[in-house]
């Protein structure tokens, strides 16, 4: 096996940002988003979804923001 296969496996978590699927229905995308944010790990982490709210809280509590960027439009 060429190691590139392993490489692609071990770094598989990083999926290239792709363009919006042209055929995707907006309602379907909205449903995917809602499904994503209802997953257990989101509640577990107490994630804030509003950027300005997160910054204001960081300022008030003198903390850093730990930002997690993910996607819902595809798995």
């Amino acid at each position: 096996m060429k190691t590139s296969t392993l490489l692609s496996t071990v770094v598989a978590g990083l999926v290239a940002v792709s363009a919006a699927p042209a055929q995707s229905d907006q309602a379907d995308l909205q449903a995917k988003y809602e499904k994503k944010i209802s997953e257990d790990w989101v509640g577990h982490g107490g994630w804030i979804l509003d950027f300005d709210e997160a910054l204001a809280k960081a300022k008030k509590e003198n903390k850093l923001v730990f930002a997690y960027f993910t996607r819902s439009y595809s798995p």
């Binding site: 919006a20 699927p21 982490g45 804030i48 930002a67 997690y68 439009y73």
Partner: peptide
């Protein structure tokens, strides 16, 4: 890692912000 008890403890020390790219207009 984001579902572990240790992560829940870690989030006490920071402000966890979740950004989801949706492609929703």
């Amino acid at each position: 890692s984001l579902s572990t008890p240790d992560f829940a403890k870690f989030t006490d020390k920071v402000v966890p912000y979740l950004h989801v790219t949706t492609h929703v207009e």
